[in-house]
Design a protein around this nucleic acid. Structure first.
Lengths: 244, 244
DNA sequence: GCCGATTTGTCCGTATGTATC
DNA sequence: CGATACATACGGACAAATCGG
């Protein structure tokens, strides 16, 4: 699968850390040692290490070594990170995913939608609304808009399973980048109608734009989560000590 | 400041994009062209491009080129991204920051705090609670715990300004990695006491652990945001099309 | 459909700088 | 000071994807 050498090294190192071969605070073998172990150049080892650092698994310490900072997570709520489909996230969290399609139709982008989503006015889009279940509980209200020119042939049946699976495997499109932002918004009538909210009057909302390999924004998403089952994870690396 | 060549190239390219020299959808000059322009090796150009891609400014397209996908953001709410101090974020968002210290004392980590934060039991910590203002409005309730062994000499005065500034510039400690997660929680009495919440019964909560260059988790943070002024941004790159 | 030019992706070897101990 | 380890940079080679003729 990972044809690139640095990727297989990255995966191997990652698995070793997850397996507990190196505990938090331990130093990895030096880069030069790893060069010998994996039979590759130092550049290649460094790429693998850089990828682990981005995942928050290790951190490089100049003149010292590479320290493991990975700690197994204690999972509670449904967590999302990276670009993942609902199905992928659900399975990663050991939940049984379910989907009910509320609406699926095509329409043209008007001024209001153009301003909100960033789609060009006049473009034809699919408008898709779904309720997402985890272990039978309705937790998420999803709104998706796809450019029909980019995602043709979308059906209710596909929407009930994985649209991303369809996009990537059937249409052969490559999803590359997504921009997302998280906000907290008031519950709407739709939220209350389809989800079990108790007395919460807020929802956790993930809004996003997804770009394909052509650099075209082909999807706009809004995912409204029940607050008590929402968790978003992130690891960040401080680049430059900003001076203010 | 950026002594590394690839960083100054990164900054230059970034500024040019922000200045509108290249619009979204445009292709950058090819890597080889940039090698000539900046007088460096191809690897160095590629590092700068990789950094721009992580920022969501460009995306590389195999066999095609590097496409600009940066679009100037329409700022509404207060946004936080990367590892930034409150002051840094506030200034970046053109707001006037203010701080009121509610509590600052030392204590020892008990079982309950150890379980919640990940600090070792028995360690001495600073316990700091603050209200954060933006343009005079109380919007954020901050809770910080610092290992006193790592952040000695913390005073009320420092807490009223930037603790991070103190840590990095006075103590000379380098902040490297942070893990954060975002959740939505019910309002507490403290939230209601110090913030103007209207009838919101939820808060956006950013919880995080911060590691220094020694790989020691020296800070635990909980930042409780008023929902209508909360926004968290993220760009993600899909690495491998997961097969399920 | 094939071929060749262009462009990005991967990998290597080497040299030098810099931080730590 | 010297040894070790990571950081940066260069130059070259080949692979893989894209696009036009």
């Amino acid at each position: 699968m990972p044809r690139a050498k640095y990727q297989s090294i990255y995966r191997d190192m990652k698995q070793r850390i997850e397996a507990g071969e190196r505990q938090a605070q331990d130093l990895l073998p030096s880069e030069n040692t790893l060069v010998g172990f994996y039979g590759c150049s130092r550049n290649t080892v460094r790429r693998a290490i850089a990828a682990l650092a981005e995942d928050g698994y290790v951190q490089s310490l100049h003149g010292v070594g590479v320290r493991v900072i990975y700690q197994p997570v204690t999972q509670t709520a449904f967590s999302m990170g990276g670009i993942e489909s609902f199905r992928e996230s659900a399975l990663r969290n050991n939940k049984v995913p379910g989907t009910k399609v509320l609406n699926l139709f095509t329409m043209n982008v008007d001024d209001r939608i153009a301003a909100r989503t960033g789609f060009p006015k006049g473009e034809e889009i699919y408008f898709l609304q779904r309720v997402r279940y985890l272990d039978e509980k309705p937790l998420i209200l999803d709104l998706n808009m796809f450019l029909t020119s980019q995602v043709p042939g979308l059906t209710r049946e596909i929407a009930e399973n994985s649209v991303y699976d369809y996009i990537e495997n059937e249409l052969g499109m490559t999803i590359v980048t997504s921009k997302r932002w998280i906000t907290v918004e008031r519950v709407t009538e739709l939220d209350e109608k389809w989800l079990d909210l108790g007395d919460y009057n807020c929802m956790a909302v993930i809004t996003g734009q997804v770009y394909n390999a052509d650099g075209i924004m082909f999807e706009y998403t809004q995912s409204r989560h029940r607050p008590d089952y929402f968790s978003f994870h992130d690891t960040a690396v401080r680049k430059k000590p900003l001076r203010l």
